[in-house]
Nucleic acid binder design. Structure first.
Lengths: 255, 255
DNA sequence: AGGAGCGTTGCACCTACTGCAACGTCCATT
DNA sequence: AATGGACGTTGCAGTAGGTGCAACGCTCCT
């Protein structure tokens, strides 16, 4: 491990606490002022550190730019796929991955069931937004006013007797889903199909995608499917972790 | 300037473009694989890079956290946000908040009219500094010699026929903006988009941020947008008042 | 089973990082 | 106005430690 880089990077969390001048940085790093100066200069050239008008150092704007660009280039699908495949190996059912985009919920990945009886769905196709378990999770995470606006605008087709009938019922369901952190669709879209879904969250805690397992009654009952929920949630959490770059940080660098 | 740190930091923008393996990083840095490995390891220990399951490297969670903290230290943003949101409620258009830092102008907040969900999506991106209304305001407030130096160094891309063509034109525009206390961008960046902007000032009268409303021609004409100018200026003044009235002291949490 | 590609490690060399001390500048104090 | 102190900055000599090389181990593909 590189000492110089290590020291330089140690400056960042230090500055995250608030602005500091050269002396303070040098002290807390345990190095000579001149050394700290050179490190700060290098950080500065890369825009990670900003020198405010009173000459003290602060975290710089390039940090946003980097984080922002990294977000954009992150492909949930790519990251999630191995997890989805593994889940499918374990339970055998169809696994879906979906995102919310401009008023629609879209399937962006799918691993087919090993059983001969499969549910129909297509990647890229908008899902039945008022009933699908993944849709509930994605909408439940939106700010309340927006949820309301969307709910009012939607149609509520009665696919089955258990379909969500209207906006108030939908909003109530969303509230419930939001609180419990998972969702189901028990025959709300097609009479014989049940789903259990869990949210995938980004570094900021917001829901960026949702995943589900689906199976028809003829293969497993709704109750049996629900026993998979912990597994689904664990898988979703694993994807969240990887997506947000959450490293099991070791508390190494003290002395 | 420290070579080692310089190399290490050069990895970050490289990874922001997308995941890369050791060989790719080493090649693009122009160093031996073993060197790149050690740099990456150090970055990894600090959580700035993350190693995904396929062993490729990516920017890590710590970077997002730091960006977040850096952003939170900008208390203008906190103060301004409710005002921006209210303005957005009133006029329905996109509202931006931007600051100047180290030769760049960056959006630090945005309220999007149509897709409030994606409101963080472009924050952190440098703006088109030669044409954006907020950029003109922020640069116009710099001391004259500094303005000139910056203006000389800039590129003047012709996004549209109305883009600022060169340094003299830009300096003239800045002078005008400085005197009138507001700025516009009428199709200078994208043909169909107009903006009207106003400055936010600190207690000492210096411009600390700038805000704007933007709307495409298809929604409102440039003239109609300009009728919002008084409202934008009043909002900016309200933020200025609140910002300068408050003690901008951020206490360090330890010691 | 063999080979290619990639990450990893130990090592010797010498780059370039470090701490020191001296200098410049700004500000507060006398 | 003069002086002292605090802080940032720079040139320099010594050596800590970063670098590239080459060899090794692993996994995956043929």
């Amino acid at each position: 491990m590189s000492q110089t880089v290590d020291r330089a990077l140690s400056i960042l969390p230090l500055l995250a606490e608030g602005p500091a001048d050269l002396g303070q940085v040098a002290d807390r790093l345990g190095v000579h002022k001149s050394t700290a100066l050179r490190l700060l200069r290098t950080l500065h050239e890369h825009g990670l550190v900003y020198r405010q008008s009173d000459q003290r150092y602060r975290l710089g704007a390039r940090l946003f730019a980097l984080a922002q660009e990294a977000m954009e280039n992150l492909d949930i699908r790519e990251i999630a796929h191995p997890h989805l495949a593994r889940l499918n190996e374990t339970c055998g059912h169809t696994v879906h991955l979906a995102v919310y985009e401009e008023g629609e919920v879209l399937y962006i990945d799918k691993v087919e069931s090993r059983y001969p009886v499969r549910m129909y769905s297509r990647i890229g196709k908008p899902v039945a937004i008022t009933v699908a378990a993944v849709a509930k999770l994605l909408l439940a995470d939106l700010p309340e006013p927006e949820r309301r606006v969307i709910a009012e605008k939607l149609d509520y087709p009665l696919y089955t007797a258990r379909s969500t009938p209207n906006a108030p019922a939908f909003l109530r369901e969303l509230e419930k889903v939001r609180e419990q952190g998972w969702a189901t669709d028990l025959g709300g879209h097609e009479e014989s199909i049940n789903c259990a879904a869990a949210p995938i969250r980004g570094a900021d805690g917001r829901v960026v995608a949702a995943m589900s397992v689906s199976a028809p009654n003829v293969v497993v009952t709704a109750d049996e499917l629900l026993t998979l929920l912990p597994l689904v949630r664990r898988t979703a959490d694993a994807i969240s972790g990887e997506y947000s770059g959450r490293t099991p940080i070791k508390e190494a660098p003290k002395e």
